[in-house]
Amino acid sequence: MQPHTDVETALLGPILPDRACGDCTACCTELTVTTPEFAKPAGTPCIHLSNKGCGIHAVRPRICRTWFCVWRRVASLPDGARPDRSGLLVSLNFVKEPQNCLEGVSINVRVLAGSDAIANGMAAAVLDSVCDQLVPVWFSDGSRKMLMHPDTDVARFVLSGEAAPAQLQDEVAAWRERYGMFG
């Protein structure tokens, strides 16, 4: 079992039995992989990737057998949000040395090169589906990374440690309780 499997299931739910990767290989190119068994930089196709998918699927590394994008776990994401269809790769990220507590464990929505997901509204639909729980959501359009959830006011109080106004106290306290360990 990979070290983050229980966290992924707790935050996102189990793998949905009716969703399969199919022809999608976005993670095989987009993601950084650094394990003792296998490594590759982000944005570089895996050396095992062929025009028919994974060339070593039956014996692929453990990370490739146990990692699943958020589309495979979150039923509220539309079927069209599969990365190869939507142009968006949504993943749960674990940052060893986060710059702030909202980066330690978070959902990252990445726009893939050539995608029209912002213009066609898919990015908004995906963000609406994942910005509904106590998990930070970051959006990357290829040129910058932006915090989408929690909203700016809540994030400011969570990060600054300042006392929040009455209308935000409960929400800020919940975020601090869950993510303070990553600060």
Score class of each variant (00 low, 15 high):
Leu92Ile: 08
Leu12Ile: 09
Ala123Lys: 01
Pro61Tyr: 01
Ser160Asp: 04
Phe68Ile: 00
Ala155Val: 06
His48Gln: 12
Asn120Thr: 05
Asp84Gln: 12
Asp6Gln: 14
Gly87Ile: 13
Val109Lys: 03
Cys54Leu: 07
Ala42Val: 14
Leu12Tyr: 09
Asp6Glu: 15
Ser76Asn: 05
Gly161Lys: 02
Gln169Leu: 11
Ser106Phe: 03
Asp151Ala: 10
Ala174Gly: 06
Gln99Pro: 02
Gly55Thr: 11
Trp71Lys: 14
Glu97Asp: 14
Ala163Lys: 13
Val70Ala: 15
Cys54Lys: 02
Leu31Phe: 08
Trp67Lys: 09
Ala174His: 05
Arg19Ser: 08
Trp175Cys: 03
Trp175Ser: 09
Cys27Ser: 05
Gly180Ser: 09
Arg156Gly: 13
Val130Trp: 10
Val33Ala: 07
Thr25Ser: 11
Leu147Gly: 01
Ser129His: 02
Val130Asn: 00
Ile15Cys: 13
Ala155Met: 09
Cys101Gly: 11
Pro98Asn: 10
Ser143Ile: 11
Cys69Asp: 15
Ala75Phe: 09
Gly55Lys: 13
Pro136Trp: 03
Ala155Arg: 14
Ser86Trp: 06
Gly104Met: 06
Asp18Asn: 14
Gln167Phe: 10
Asp128Lys: 15
Thr29Ser: 12
Lys40Gln: 03
Ile56Phe: 03
Asp128Met: 07
Leu127Cys: 06
Ser143Leu: 12
Trp138Met: 02
Ile63Pro: 03
Leu159Ile: 12
Arg62Val: 13
Pro14Lys: 13
Asn108Trp: 00
Leu77Tyr: 06
Pro61Met: 01
Ser76Pro: 01
Thr44His: 04
Pro14Gly: 14
Arg65Glu: 12
Ala155Phe: 07
Gly183Trp: 04
Ala155Tyr: 10
Gly183Glu: 11
Leu159Ala: 03
Val70Leu: 14
His149Asn: 13
Val135Asn: 08
Leu159His: 03
Ser50Asp: 08
Trp67Thr: 13
Asn120Gln: 01
Gln133Lys: 15
Gly142Leu: 06
Gln99Thr: 11
Asn51Trp: 05
Glu8Arg: 15
Ile47Pro: 11
Val59Trp: 01
Val135Ala: 11
Thr34Asp: 15
Gly55Phe: 05
Leu127Asp: 05
Val130Glu: 10
Pro14Phe: 13
Ser86Glu: 02
Gln99Ile: 09
Asp23Pro: 08
Asp141Phe: 07
Ala42His: 10
Ala75Arg: 11
Pro165Gln: 07
Asp84Val: 11
Ala81Ser: 14
Lys96Met: 09
Asp170Gly: 08
Lys40Arg: 00
Trp175His: 04
Ser76Gln: 14
Ser86Gly: 15
Asn51Lys: 05
Gly22Leu: 09
Trp138Lys: 07
Pro83Gln: 03
Val105Gly: 06
Asp6Trp: 11
Leu134Lys: 05
Val172Phe: 08
Pro83Thr: 07
Asp18Lys: 11
Pro41Ala: 15
Leu88Lys: 05
Arg65Gly: 01
Val137Tyr: 04
Asp116Glu: 11
Met146Tyr: 03
Arg60Ser: 02
Gln167Arg: 12
Leu11Glu: 15
Asp84Pro: 00
Leu16Asp: 05
Leu147Glu: 02
Lys40Leu: 07
Lys96His: 08
Ser86Asp: 06
Val105Lys: 06
Arg156Ile: 02
Ser91His: 07
Leu16Pro: 12
Cys69His: 09
Val59Gln: 02
Ser106Glu: 08
Arg82Ser: 10
Leu134Trp: 07
Thr44Gly: 00
Val137Ile: 02
Leu49Cys: 07
Lys145Trp: 12
